[in-house]
Design a protein around this nucleic acid. Structure first.
Lengths: 269, 269
DNA sequence: TATTGACTCTCCCGTTACTGGAGGCTGTAG
DNA sequence: CTACAGCCTCCAGTAACGGGAGAGTCAATA
């Protein structure tokens, strides 16, 4: 017979835990001194305790363990317990996998944005655009409707998206209620489906300006771009493009003063 | 301003949860009526609540969330939180992966054993053995030492093991203290290392008998096998083999009366 | 024999993020 | 005036222990 302290050292279970298991009826001492209340454990219980530890390591609940110990003395008796427990664990696993994925997406996005922030200058630039394939939804109406379009594209093309969202503007002047625009996502490949049009945007020389601040203030930056185009006597093509480099975050809506949007106007070649 | 019930419907958080968040200081109502104690929430808090929900879905603790909300209003501010949280989640993931693996191993083992139990007959059989590659440790001494050898082989060749453990007996008579034997694991491939000898066991005609019961009673089954060999005038080869079909389980020590051991004696060809 | 020091006992609280329930007050509609 | 829905506070419970207080016990030593 071992005292609780000895038994604790043998089994690796703490004294507290042993007392708790006694209270819960999972592992009862062989003998309890009626006078002192001291617990004494017989050597046979060592194996019993080992079984309990094993099951706890597999994250079985104490009530499951009680049930198991009451009706089984062989691994083959508990196959159903094992399988159903495996399912629960697998569900947890799935959940944590999703969380890690989400976290990864957010982290990657923010790290990109952060590194980008460093090397941005807020002057008008001329640069060369590569052609890109996009999935877009042509819309007429209010810009505020674009959210639905983006999420629809996201659902359909989720895993093929390869860059930041952008919007094509087909109006030559600013319109509020019946604007003509196309929310797009750059994709690696895919075909038009279900109202979503997959097409290629041509590359070429373009004028680019990065706008920092809320979307309502985009007008000021457009002014600069069009002023520049006029000064240089450049002719440009429709539609113009807005690339949303940094907008509302995945968690916070973010601070609109930090939003970054690139205005791109492709020149006639 | 919304009442707690309205705000609950809007945000999807239960009334209980909202009260709890108030108590914890995570999400304080905009106004609390001093007379009635009624909580009232301003529309701006909807977004705030959404942030909290998002973070909870990512399994952040409430104290983390408080800390985050107190010092950040943009995703990029919380990169460190996200990364360190990601690590914790990844650790959990690892753990659950291990558990699933262990469970799978146990389940597979037991299902095999169970299906085997059905088609076993306990008569002496003559059958054809295929050659197999094994990793073994030649030992002299007591059989009870074999556990260490098995676990050593398991550690070194873990992922290449492809069948049940077996033991080779080189003694022509029973010996207690200085037996000459070799615990082995069948493996798919591998090389001798560090005291472990990888070699091939030849195939051929063999006499086989499945023994059910504790190892101490193996003697009775050996008697039957050798009796049969004598009756048939068969000559056999050393070493003889014992295959441990079902022994102590991964969790329970199991019931020795249910242990299954196959005795194999290869005939001279 | 008294005394140490190690061991053990019970009882209570705290952890996390809530849920459930009792008992009582408030607001509004009929 | 009376329902009834909605809101309040306070308390208890969850799972599996860990920490600590205060008191009793055991074995060996002075």
């Amino acid at each position: 017979m071992f005292s609780i302290g000895e038994f604790s050292k043998i089994t690796g279970l703490t004294v507290k835990t042993l007392r708790f298991y006694h209270e819960q009826g999972v592992l009862k001492p062989s003998h309890v001194d009626p006078g002192t209340g001291y617990r004494y454990y017989a050597p046979e219980l060592i194996d019993y305790a080992r079984v309990i530890s094993s099951l706890r390591e597999l994250e079985f609940s104490l009530s499951d363990i009680s049930a198991i110990l009451n009706q089984a003395d062989d691994d083959s008796d508990i196959l159903e317990f094992l399988s159903s427990h495996r399912q629960e664990i697998a569900a947890q696993l799935e959940r944590y996998n999703q969380i890690t994925n989400s976290l990864d997406v957010i982290i990657r996005k923010e790290e990109e944005a952060r590194s980008l922030m460093g090397k941005i200058n807020y002057d008008i630039e001329e640069k060369q655009l590569e052609p890109i394939l996009v999935a877009g939804i042509r819309m007429k109406g209010r810009y505020s409707e674009c959210g639905k379009a983006f999420s629809k594209i996201g659902r359909k093309f989720g895993r093929h998206i390869c860059d930041k969202p952008l919007m094509l503007h087909y109006d030559s002047e600013y319109r509020e209620d019946d604007a003509n625009f196309e929310p797009c996502m750059p994709i690696r490949r895919g075909d038009s489906v279900d109202g979503i049009d997959v097409h290629e945007l041509r590359g070429g020389r373009c004028i680019s300006l990065i706008h920092q601040g809320p979307y309502e203030e985009l007008g000021r930056s457009y002014e600069r771009v069009f002023g520049y185009l006029r000064d240089q006597n450049y002719e440009f093509e429709m539609p113009t493009r807005e690339v949303y480099i940094k907008g509302p975050g995945m968690i916070f809506r973010g601070n609109p003063k930090k939003y970054l949007t690139e205005i791109q106007v492709v020149l006639k070649s």
